[in-house]
Design a protein around this nucleic acid. Structure first.
Lengths: 204, 204
DNA sequence: GTCTATAATTTGATAGAC
DNA sequence: GTCTATCAAATTATAGAC
């Protein structure tokens, strides 16, 4: 069937493009390299995606749509905040470790083009999710379960502690004088460590 | 004097190259753009630095030599750990805010070329600094002033909480629904907030 | 839909005059 | 040391056969 073949090649190209773009960025990536990785001809990239820019945008959207739901998913559960934190740090560190190139890819592209998110993220991360977290925190503060902190700062803390040590692995292995395996073990330990750290920091 | 003129043009080129490379990366930067910014001819870049790669390396070394001493400086004081943390987070967030493009520049280049640090950083961040921090933490644990934590994890915590929210500003303004000014205010508040957060997390 | 061949442009680098 | 002019290579994009 023609339709299957179309989808197959198109998906093949996108997979190859993800790999190359996410590792080398927009400027560092070469269309020829993507074609080679996909095992097809360079002309096909233009047949399906018209230009390098359009292909890149498809990859970027795919990256955003992979990452954003993971954050929302856990915030939207009905657990106690402390359980949310434990769940999130564990799952998110595992997830980011598997896709360690994606956060940097997103951060970099956003610096090049700060507008690109406005057409992509708004639907995933809408007002209700933010408000829900703010309310939950407000109640816990009232009940004196946690210290008076802002939801924004806590959100930044959680994401920072999970993501930054993973994306800076090449730097941190040198600074901390660890080999790859030793550093991976440090990251594994963080799955539990970070949750305890945060909860100790905010609880009364 | 000829010598002055030499240094002047050379420095002019390096300044322009810092600006362009640190914002656009190795592949995104254009020699022509650097020449324009320096107000001189493109041929001059090659006269002083021979190739794009060599010019880039000069910029990278300059970035490392700007960042690394700041970390060592504060760790090497004789203050109590809690004061070190307060001092460091305050000064480091201020410093990184002023040079917000440099951390990402270093992280990205290290991913492209993980070997480059071995000839640059080793002298700045040597064994004695690491050992000193480890010892100090060991003593505080023994004295039951802080919970039993590893120096490596604490180091990662401190750097992550300071740097990540700054380099992800374009992403976080959208997620948290803040404008530039509001987000800068959040970062300013972190100068005190982060220290309290960390100390609460580790103290008995 | 897929391929080969090639056009069109960009860009790092150099030659050579002053 | 500095400039103009130009080369040579790389790279995106397209034309056209099958």
């Amino acid at each position: 069937m023609t339709k299957n073949k179309e989808n197959n090649t198109e998906a093949l190209i996108l997979d190859a493009a993800k790999d190359i773009f996410q590792h080398k960025g927009m400027e560092g990536a070469r269309m020829q390299e993507i074609a080679d990785k996909a095992g097809i001809n360079k002309a096909m990239l233009h047949y399906y995606y018209r230009s390098k820019q359009k292909l890149f945008e498809a990859v970027f959207k795919s990256a955003i749509n992979l990452m954003a739901p993971k954050v929302v998913e856990i915030i939207n559960t009905e657990e106690h905040l402390f359980d949310k934190i434990r769940n999130f740090t564990d799952k998110y560190i595992t997830f980011i470790s598997k896709h360690s190139y994606i956060p940097l890819f997103i951060i970099n592209e956003l610096r090049r083009n700060p507008e690109i998110l406005k057409t992509t993220l708004d639907h995933n991360f809408d007002v209700s999710v933010r408000d829900k977290l703010r309310e939950e925190i407000a109640i816990l503060i009232q009940n004196k379960e946690i210290k008076p902190i802002s939801a924004e700062q806590l959100f930044l803390d959680v994401i920072s502690l999970c993501v930054f040590p993973i994306i800076t692995k090449p730097l941190m292995t040198v600074i901390l004088d660890k080999n790859n395996k030793q550093y991976d073990e440090i990251i594994t330990q963080r799955k539990k460590y970070v949750a305890d750290f945060i909860i100790n920091a905010i609880k009364y």
